[in-house]
Simulated scan of single mutants.
Amino acid sequence: MAYFERLGPDRFRPTSHVSGAWDESMQHIGPALGLLVHAIESDCAARREDPMVISRLTYELLGVVPMDVVDVRVELIRPGRTIELVEATYGQGDRTGIRLRAWLQQSRDTTAVAGDGFDPIPPPADMEPWDPTTIWRGGYLASAQVRRDSAGPGRARYWVRTAVPLLADDDDDEVSTLARMAGLFDIANGMAVRADPSRVHYPNIDLTAHLVRPPQGEWVGFDTRVTFGPGGLGLTASVIHDEAGPLGTVSQSLTVRP
């Protein structure tokens, strides 16, 4: 079973793997983030013959989304020969639950000047398996395979993958590695646990990913720090990796509610 079944060109039904960690009658937004990337990449491929790569994903989480059929719409906001801004929305009827704006760029060879300042993390084989359902509810967290090295509240390094495809096998569209991995980006807020979620709620209200190259492989790695401020605000900040090295960063604004 996949995360979504396609019902039409822009309509999808979430499966039980999408049920949320805070409320199982609502969708976990993780798989939706991947589906929106897939929609933007499919739209770009249909419009252009020259390939583009995504350099930034900014999701605004406008409200909870019940476990029901959703509509996905894509709009070109800023056309360009080498850079484009594209928007995708995810909602039910007139109600938009998630809005994504993505910058796409034309790829060019910068191998001669490539480099990064991020710290490496141990590979998946060097970390112990961890079951997120010991803390979290819902089908989405149950679908994740996690290997984790926790350094205490709000600090962890870990790798995540899933055997669940984004779309059902009978879907004709090929899902990219980035779309599949983007469906795991939101998991960061639940992997470096700072407070018992039965005592403190801290859902995120957005997610931004900055990428320096397309990802490879099955595993996505995170080096995560979670901070709660004294006035109800919080931040989950991660450097993300694949097994070839750093990919970029993911950040999530939190609303902290004891």
Score class of each variant (00 low, 15 high):
residue 25 S to C: 01
residue 26 M to C: 08
residue 26 M to K: 13
residue 26 M to N: 12
residue 27 Q to S: 14
residue 27 Q to F: 02
residue 28 H to N: 15
residue 28 H to M: 05
residue 29 I to Y: 11
residue 29 I to C: 09
residue 29 I to Q: 06
residue 29 I to D: 00
residue 30 G to Y: 03
residue 31 P to C: 07
residue 31 P to T: 08
residue 32 A to N: 05
residue 32 A to L: 04
residue 32 A to K: 00
residue 33 L to A: 05
residue 34 G to R: 00
residue 34 G to E: 06
residue 36 L to S: 05
residue 36 L to N: 01
residue 38 H to F: 06
residue 38 H to G: 03
residue 38 H to L: 13
residue 40 I to K: 04
residue 40 I to C: 12
residue 40 I to P: 00
residue 41 E to R: 00
residue 42 S to N: 10
residue 42 S to C: 05
residue 42 S to H: 15
residue 42 S to D: 14
residue 43 D to V: 01
residue 43 D to C: 02
residue 43 D to I: 01
residue 43 D to S: 11
residue 43 D to H: 12
residue 45 A to F: 02
residue 46 A to Y: 03
residue 46 A to M: 01
residue 47 R to M: 08
residue 47 R to D: 07
residue 48 R to I: 09
residue 50 D to A: 14
residue 50 D to V: 14
residue 50 D to C: 04
residue 51 P to F: 00
residue 51 P to E: 03
residue 51 P to A: 09
residue 53 V to N: 06
residue 53 V to R: 08
residue 54 I to M: 14
residue 54 I to N: 01
residue 55 S to D: 10
residue 57 L to V: 05
residue 58 T to A: 13
residue 58 T to E: 13
residue 58 T to S: 13
residue 61 L to A: 07
residue 62 L to D: 04
residue 63 G to S: 06
residue 64 V to A: 15
residue 64 V to F: 07
residue 65 V to I: 14
residue 66 P to G: 10
residue 66 P to A: 07
residue 66 P to L: 08
residue 67 M to Y: 00
residue 67 M to A: 09
residue 68 D to M: 11
residue 68 D to N: 11
residue 69 V to D: 15
residue 69 V to M: 07
residue 69 V to A: 13
residue 69 V to I: 08
residue 70 V to Q: 03
residue 71 D to C: 08
residue 71 D to N: 14
residue 72 V to C: 11
residue 73 R to I: 10
residue 74 V to Q: 07
residue 74 V to P: 03
residue 76 L to W: 06
residue 77 I to S: 07
residue 77 I to C: 12
residue 77 I to E: 12
residue 78 R to E: 13
residue 78 R to L: 14
residue 79 P to M: 07
residue 80 G to F: 09
residue 80 G to H: 09
residue 81 R to D: 11
residue 81 R to N: 12
residue 82 T to S: 14
residue 82 T to F: 10
residue 84 E to V: 04
residue 85 L to W: 04
residue 85 L to M: 13
residue 86 V to M: 12
residue 86 V to R: 09
residue 87 E to G: 06
residue 89 T to W: 04
residue 89 T to F: 05
residue 91 G to R: 03
residue 92 Q to R: 15
residue 92 Q to S: 10
residue 92 Q to C: 10
residue 92 Q to G: 05
residue 92 Q to T: 14
residue 93 G to L: 09
residue 95 R to D: 10
residue 95 R to Y: 04
residue 95 R to W: 09
residue 96 T to Q: 09
residue 96 T to I: 15
residue 97 G to Y: 03
residue 97 G to P: 09
residue 97 G to F: 06
residue 99 R to I: 01
residue 99 R to T: 09
residue 99 R to A: 07
residue 100 L to I: 10
residue 101 R to M: 11
residue 101 R to Q: 13
residue 103 W to I: 13
residue 103 W to N: 10
